[in-house]
Design a protein around this nucleic acid. Sequence first.
RNA 1: GCCCUGGUAGCUCAGUUGGAUAGAGCAUCCGCCUCCUAAGCGGAGGGUCACAGGUUCGACUCCUGUUCAGGGCGCCA
Length: 574
Amino acid sequence: MNLKQLLDDRVAVAMTAAGVADAKAIVKQAQKSEFGHYQANGIMGAAKRQKSNPRELAGKVLKQLGDDMDLQLEVAGPGFINITLSPDFLAGALKKLQHSHRLGIEEAEEKVVVVDYSAPNLAKEMHIGHLRSTTIGDTAVRILEFLGHAVVRANHVGDWGAQFGSLLAYMDQLASQGEELSSELKDLEKFYQSASALFRSDEAFAIKARSFVVRLQGGDERCLALWEEFITESKRHCQAVYDQLNITLTANDIRAESAYNDELPVLVNELEEKQLLVESEGAKCVFLDGFKGKDDKPLPAIIQKSDGGYPYMATDLAAVRYRAGTLKAHEVLYFVGTQQQLHLRQVFAVAAAAGYIGGHQRFRHLPFGWVLKADNTPFKTRDGADVKLVDVLNEAVDRAHRLVNEKNPDLSLEEKKNIAKVVGIGAIKYAELSKNRTTDYIFDWDTMLSFEGNTAPYLQYAYTRIQSIFRRENILATEIKGKFHLTDPAELRLAVKLLQFSETINAVIEDYQANILCNYLFELAGIFMSFYEACPVLKASEPHRTSRLLLCHLTASTLQKGLDLLGIETIEQM
RNA sequence: GCCCUGGUAGCUCAGUUGGAUAGAGCAUCCGCCUCCUAAGCGGAGGGUCACAGGUUCGACUCCUGUUCAGGGCGCCA
């Protein structure tokens, strides 16, 4: 059930019947409640095209729509049609929703969708900047799976390249000094910083570090063993963060850069055979039209460097080849920062030229900006003094714990701990997901860890209020029998909003903008809060009591499902 | 120099193929707990939608120019 689509279709049919060619109804949710529930904006444009009076045309369309018991229609302003749904219609539609088990969201035709997200660099610990890709990508995954698609999570972690030279050399040095590596690696961030400091200050160490890169790439056993140990530990760090953050990624979803190592020479051969490769300044490059660098010179995609090494262009191409060819993806989504835009455009273009991407296969970059420090500079581990993701998560849980102590001191420690976890983590994820910005934003503890207003705790709180109603009289929400009976304006507003979950999900997946879902849930919760104040539930007389219980139950289900799609949990009380 | 983003209330941000009087949250101010959880509800103030033109019945939205900010532009990822 998609109200917007339903109305759009009906108005479009009426417009055609009224003599409009190529009728577009352009039905949208009404901007103000006085305009009804929906408004059709397409009449004015149509009138303009056929050079007629818009209000007259709107009148004709209205006549075609006929006397509908369900819809109250009126021509307004310069030629809008305002649509108000009747209480009976809303009650009937809610009844269907209640029994759909999918809250009105239909299953889509299954497609294979690869979602490339999170992708931390294993040389360092995850920091606050990884939150965007990780949370937004995971939401996309959850929604796509809910819609019935076959989703392949692709965690393209960085586990190869020059930066591992100093890490391995440092490990080697510590080991030869008899240090216990496993304890040294507990704080990856410190380890990375110590290694890079040494690299900068100690020339002998730097030489050794560079030699370790060569040895690693040459398959030297000692190096590989150290590398394995480091990578294993780093993956453990990542997984701990994912688990705490309630992210669905697991070890099985990692397909690291190094996984493509063996395919890189093959890739070069294939591009050579297709006569795409050109040697330029010793490097093997692909030049394509439409890519210009400084001074209007053609911009190469460097596939193999002059020293024989492979830049990330090669690995990313190999990944495209794998995803399109082996995984047979219909759609591949890259949740990667905006600074990679040109790079990814090049990757996709070269892959298309090489025939790796079929005509029906769609590769999309969903970009976002930096997370900045208060001084407007990006978080960079090299500089030290940045915010580790684990620290942010722990701080969030701590703050939430203090708050729940204050608000609900009688709960058991166990309950308080769980609430603190769910609320704290939820707040962080929501703070990230509720933004649409492709531009940068400045990280601020208090904004990100706010528990008031448009935040996850607000939504979770609305949910607990509903559960509290059921708990008070031991009502089993799933067993409530009866009909929706809508009279109060607050009930009607809530009904309409509940029915708009499906069209919201449709809007979200167009560009995978989680903030649209956040916004919907915030409005739903807000409307529920008003309803809660205005309409007593347990003390109401029948048939209102049953109807309100049903509304509460449907609201709780929608909030819970919506939050679940955002990767945010609910609790029974807080 | 060229290309891509973006500039909306004091702050953080919405604004759905161009629609009606530009909306939230935070902060500020004023009300509301003998009543299902006040992490809440109701209300108030707060705007030259960066600037200037243009397109049209109508522009925060589309076009052009200016300006400011961020990112990118051959062997880091």
